[in-house]
Design a protein around this nucleic acid. Sequence first.
DNA 1: TACATAATGATATGATATATCATTCAAATA
DNA 2: TATTTGAATGATATATCATATCATTATGTA
Lengths: 153, 153
Amino acid sequence: MIHSKPINNIDKICQQKGISLTQKRHNIFDVLLSSMIPLSAYDITDIYKNKFVTSMPTMSIYRILEFLTGSGLVHKLESTNKYIACSHLQCDHEHTNAQFLICNSCSEVEEVALTQELHHQIEVGAEQKGFKLEALQFELHGTCKTCLKKQSH
Amino acid sequence: MIHSKPINNIDKICQQKGISLTQKRHNIFDVLLSSMIPLSAYDITDIYKNKFVTSMPTMSIYRILEFLTGSGLVHKLESTNKYIACSHLQCDHEHTNAQFLICNSCSEVEEVALTQELHHQIEVGAEQKGFKLEALQFELHGTCKTCLKKQSH
DNA sequence: TACATAATGATATGATATATCATTCAAATA
DNA sequence: TATTTGAATGATATATCATATCATTATGTA
């Protein structure tokens, strides 16, 4: 179990950042926040219907996911095509350099900030090839602590 | 233009590695090798038809791509859902740690070996979280040398 | 209220991918 | 050479992920 603690002050954060969080956007964020594992837009559709009784079209969910990822509240995992709430919203630093430890066994994800040091090294490596990096997002697949323990039994 | 030089000794390499490269697998590999940019399975379907006159069902192409990626001859870019021929087949080292510089402007990709140093750092960072890494694949998005030059004009 | 703009809904369709069963090919052996 | 067997490929259906577009509704402001 590598899930991080819930975020309760999302409204305050959004107010500070000037992000307009409608009720529905808030709901989608809540669905992601309540989930132990990343969800697809269609997963969210199903969970939303159960959780909020009323249903939302998947296309609206995609739109809201786009808004939430654009605002930095949610990340999209490119390697699995799933979405996850940012677990570093409390921090005041930028989150353009995220590193995700994705467990192939239980699907849980831990979000880790990339160290300045590491980021710098990678950037310099790219620069040597004449390549200008944009935001980094590393998706590291493997096995989490809990699943490793289970396997060793 | 960051494309690497073509690989002519693919058959010899496969023989050495014990990879059974059928004509059709060879053809798919050729399509990828001839392309400056990563291709989707459906892209390959179209190109294959033109290049080899006869057509191959996309599902067969998926199967062959699975074989080729499993053999290490081809990489799948998770961030774009496209496939690319490995450009380090000549080398005798393992290619479990690849880094791709993906140009968002021209779509060309440069495959760079991850340094032992960097790999080690990342592995240790993950280990500190109790996380056991599998093969690393970093997909770095940005702008390549050529496109940067063009933009500055 | 009236207007303008942002947010959401509805519908259609495109793009990527897997599952399954049938058929063909190719190597090994009788 | 004929036969067998397993690997490779074809065909069909369908699941999954995603975007485009136009219509409608909600919200803030003059």
